[in-house]
């Protein structure tokens, strides 16, 4: 187990470094950063001033080393727009996005688990068809559009939920539904397939033959074995929700990390964009690492491989 953990952690650190290099190169080595920041009407003097301020005339490798070195201590430089430390901005915005993504994950699971299990218990039944319809819709709807429809129906027409902002938990309900629904279909399919496989397995048949009640067989034997891939997918989806929050937060005017990313991209506030890209990626890597650990702990076969 220790060796397995060490390998996974080593790999995760390497991927973190690769992503940081990629995020840096993407925003620095591509195109003329100074021109992108200054806009089209900038004079050569202004461009030179921006280059000098950001230290753009030095080789990129030096700048990357400086950036990543400082980032390790939590210093991501200053925002060009706010003239404040990037880490401070992110520190204030991150909890909002984490709340949104957590709520979305809860909504996603509370839809996907019951529907997936019921659909597996009675394949071809009404529940199975309803689950399929929900999945087909969920995979075809652009989430910003679904969010706008929720906004029109539940806040503008019915007045049940606030339309924009992030002051109360109520503000998060509609955006979390929009964000969570999009991730529901893959989870539901995974649970359904896993349950069908588990229910057809020898150990479930044995458990049934021993006279164990149906409820206990489903929850203790079948669901428990179907849960391992679910943990992995959940980690991946939570990571994707953090990144995908950029669209939903913009629709609902939620002042989270995604909204900050969109504003900063529009304003060419590159230090902020770079830091957000890195932080979202690191969250993703950490989540996947944790799910690997959890699965190795749940299923000893994984760690021996």
């Amino acid at each position: 187990m220790l060796l397995y953990m060490a390998q996974r952690i080593g790999l995760a650190v390497c991927v973190c470094l690769a992503v940081s290099l990629l995020a840096f190169l993407l925003l620095n080595a591509s195109g003329d950063v100074a021109a992108a920041i200054a806009g089209e009407e900038a004079t050569p003097e202004q461009l030179a001033a921006i280059r000098a301020e950001l230290g753009l005339e030095r080789p990129w490798l030096v700048r990357y080393a400086e950036w990543i070195g400082a980032a390790l201590t939590g210093d991501f430089g200053n925002s060009l727009f706010f003239q404040r430390p990037v880490s401070e901005l992110i520190f204030y915005r991150l909890p909002t996005t984490l709340t949104l993504a957590s709520l979305a994950a809860v909504i996603m699971l509370s839809l996907a688990v019951p529907l997936g299990v019921l659909a597996a218990l009675w394949p071809g039944s009404f529940v199975d068809r309803a689950a399929l319809a929900i999945a087909v819709m969920g995979q075809a709807m652009p989430n910003f559009w679904f969010g706008l429809i929720l906004l029109v129906v539940f806040s503008l027409m019915l007045g049940w939920a606030p339309a924009s902002g992030s002051a109360t938990l109520g503000h998060f309900v509609l955006p979390a539904i929009a964000l969570g629904y999009y991730s529901t279909p893959p989870m539901m399919r995974l649970i359904r397939a896993g349950m069908i496989e588990a229910l057809a397995s020898d150990y479930v048949r044995t458990a049934r033959a021993k006279g164990i009640g149906t409820g206990k067989v489903i929850f203790k034997h079948a669901l428990r074995n179907a849960v391992i891939p679910v943990v992995s997918l959940l980690a991946v989806q939570f990571g994707n929700m953090l990144g995908g929050s950029v669209v939903i937060e913009t629709v609902f005017g939620i002042q989270g990390l995604g909204y900050l990313a969109w504003e900063s991209i529009s304003r060419m506030d590159l230090p902020v964009v770079q830091a957000i890209l890195l932080i979202v990626a690191v969250f993703y890597i950490a989540l996947v690492l944790l799910s690997d650990m959890a699965n190795a702990w749940l299923d000893p076969r994984i760690r021996i491989q």
Partner: peptide, 23 residues
């Protein structure tokens, strides 16, 4: 495999937005 893992960690929408803004 390392390429694939690195790619999977990138938040697609954010990266795409940033690249479109630059180019």
């Amino acid at each position: 495999n390392f390429f694939i893992m690195t790619r999977l960690t990138l938040p697609v929408v954010m990266v795409a937005l940033a690249v479109v803004a630059l180019f």
